[in-house]
Design a protein around this nucleic acid. Sequence first.
DNA 1: CAGAAGATCTTCT
DNA 2: GAAGATCTTCTGT
Length: 199
Amino acid sequence: MKIPLEFYRRSNPVEIARELIGKYLFTQIDGVLTGGRIVETEAYAHINDQACHSHLGRYTARTKVMYEPGGVAYTYLIYGRYVLFNIITNEAGKADAVLIRGLEPTDGIPEMLLRRGLSTVQRNLTAGPGLLTQALGITTAHYGTDLTADLIWMEDRSETVAFEDIIASPRVGIDYAGEDVSLPWRFRLKGSKWVSPAR
DNA sequence: CAGAAGATCTTCT
DNA sequence: GAAGATCTTCTGT
């Protein structure tokens, strides 16, 4: 079933990031269903986290949507080439987020191959935050999309993931974040080949 | 297989 | 004007 708003509006993004491992992310864009199982996430918190775009209450055109109540999409362009997809969590004004970094493709694989310009299913189809958005057709136009509607949403398919099968480690690409680089807020499904290659 | 470098453009200072 | 929650390609071993 589709994940309800209450799931996103809880106060601890780290817990939400961990619980999203094993859940499913889908898009239905141009009438085509694509999606897969989430195998890698990262948490970003509005307090005590220098890596978070909303750190210290920073409020700009880009971060504006982070201050909405949990359950909407935060998409943005990184390095001039890739779109990253986050879900906003917590209540209004508490700008937390979870970045989706890795997906095991399950639905709409032919369409995902087309969007990625690949002819065979391989790891770089959806293993990586900038790749899975391409495969799912997510763009910066989806900034603020309601995650309980029928364009982009997540599902709980009652697949339990054992706690010990989820690896926690430091987040990627945030060297600017001072001591917060070492927070173990990246979560990966143990043994999955669909986690991002980044260390 | 590892490491380096290049691509490319929005956002914030 | 600089840097960035990335990925691909190219080089050398």
